[in-house]
Nucleic acid binder design. Structure first.
Lengths: 258, 258
DNA sequence: CGAACGATTGACCGGCATCAAACTCGGTGG
DNA sequence: CCACCGAGTTTGATGCCGGTCAATCGTTCG
């Protein structure tokens, strides 16, 4: 509902003429565009929980990187049906689906106060090169190619969702989701074992395409089996292998011999 | 099982030193790389039905364009479960998911004898520009940006699959599939109303993540409702609007007044 | 304290998977 | 020419997962 223009902008540009938003960013070491000289520097921006980074139909203004916080993206079809299409953790990218049409295809909303970096597409257009990717052994490559690789990974990831959404039971979908989230939390610098779910049960259910009640039942069930601990939104993974199983473990110990 | 290397190669290069595979291609007008001068020209290749263009794990050798024929792509997970991830018609692209990792992530098999063009990534790397895209009003742009836009569209399309797979009933999924196929057939130069399904019921079922029997029943059901005609693999769409509905139309005419 | 919202839990039932069997069609060999 | 076979498809019968409806509970906030 709110236009992205209403959000708070923090333009580091204001202070020093050529300073980029990257000054002091803790993610510089893994960022492909950090400290790059350009007429179109990245723009840092803080988004309060519940506010959107952009909305579907907004004019494409660049690729986004999450510096801190937690966001969800979702689309609304012609009938008004909502589909959560992803969650975004620090270090991850979003907004790539807007390049071709010139406008973003989904809405992205902060679930927690978040800091993001918007990287204008022009920044990839130049002849600048980076050697950060892949930690050294590869040769320097133009930034546009970095973007292409990034999008290639996104496509691969989306294809994996075919398996998850189509072939798996609700339980395995849910378990795979928790495991994926855990790994990405770890990659973002958090604990992969114990973390807080920033999204509601409704968001999880929508994302996994199951009923809200099913998600609730699955939390309860996995907790009862000892695979996780869950209290409100505080989650702890205890047995990640059990997450990917379909059947609850047989309780052989309860059977008397014979 | 078979390596892509076993497939038949037709290298136009053999005849004239700098001639590309594009000579005589009927799709030149819509192809972003047609007749481009380069040290790495596109490679045309014919693939017999049942043979693969490449397999998962093969070293990435370029983006593919379908010149003629019909192909399917599918992945096999660690448990050996197959998931059909897409079908490819003349004029369409595939293989983009292999860019980042350096090897293709899925298998692509011809369902009918097909002619494809493999475009080395280096071809996009150069400073060559094309103005074909968008039919004129836009300015010339580097080829790499064309590729980025192409991938952006792929990402958007995959995201749409979230809606289809997750939120829709088997019937609507099936209807949406037929409609999508019809539109793409039309875009490829065939009739969008009457065409032959190149894939088996099993492929369709796998792609839509429903049981084979369900697909068969849906063909029968839609035929009975008059929305389609189906005989073996000859399909005719009669009422595309009915395809997207969930419920069979009420037969009010059968009710006597009152 | 009551309202509002999110989450949990229970009861019911319908869509679709699964199991099972028959049918069609093309190919092959006697 | 027909018998036989196998792959692909159709059709029927049955059962279960998960959606839907509904009631209750816990927490937060005005």
């Amino acid at each position: 509902m709110n236009s992205a223009a209403q959000n708070i902008f923090i333009l580091n540009k204001g202070r020093q003429e050529r300073a980029s938003a990257c000054t002091g960013c803790t993610k510089q070491s893994s960022c492909p565009v950090a400290d790059l000289e350009s007429a179109s520097p990245p723009v840092q921006r803080v988004i309060q929980a519940g506010k959107t980074a952009y909305e579907a139909g907004d004019r494409f203004g660049g690729i986004y990187i999450v510096r801190s916080g937690f966001l969800k993206s979702y689309a609304i079809d012609t009938d008004g049906v909502v589909q959560v299409t992803g969650f975004h953790l620090p270090g991850e990218f979003f907004g790539m689906d807007g390049i071709e049409t010139g406008q973003y295809g989904d809405h992205v909303e902060a679930l927690d106060t978040s800091s993001v970096c918007r990287i204008p597409l022009e920044l990839f257009n130049g002849t600048s090169r980076t050697a950060k990717e892949g930690a050294g052994t590869e040769q320097a490559q133009p930034l546009m190619l970095t973007l292409v690789k990034l999008m290639s990974r996104t496509i691969s990831g989306d294809r994996n969702m075919f398996f998850t959404l189509g072939k798996m039971s609700a339980r395995r979908r849910f378990g795979a989701f928790l495991k994926d989230l855990s790994e990405r939390m770890a990659k973002s610098g958090y604990s992969g074992e114990t973390f807080t779910l920033c999204m509601s049960r409704t968001d999880i259910a929508n994302y996994l395409c199951v009923a809200l009640e099913t998600v609730s039942r699955l939390f309860t069930q996995l907790h009862a089996e000892g695979a996780i601990s869950i209290d409100r939104r505080q989650l702890r993974l205890r047995d990640t292998a059990a997450l990917l199983r379909d059947d609850p473990p047989k309780r052989d110990r309860l059977r008397v011999t014979g």
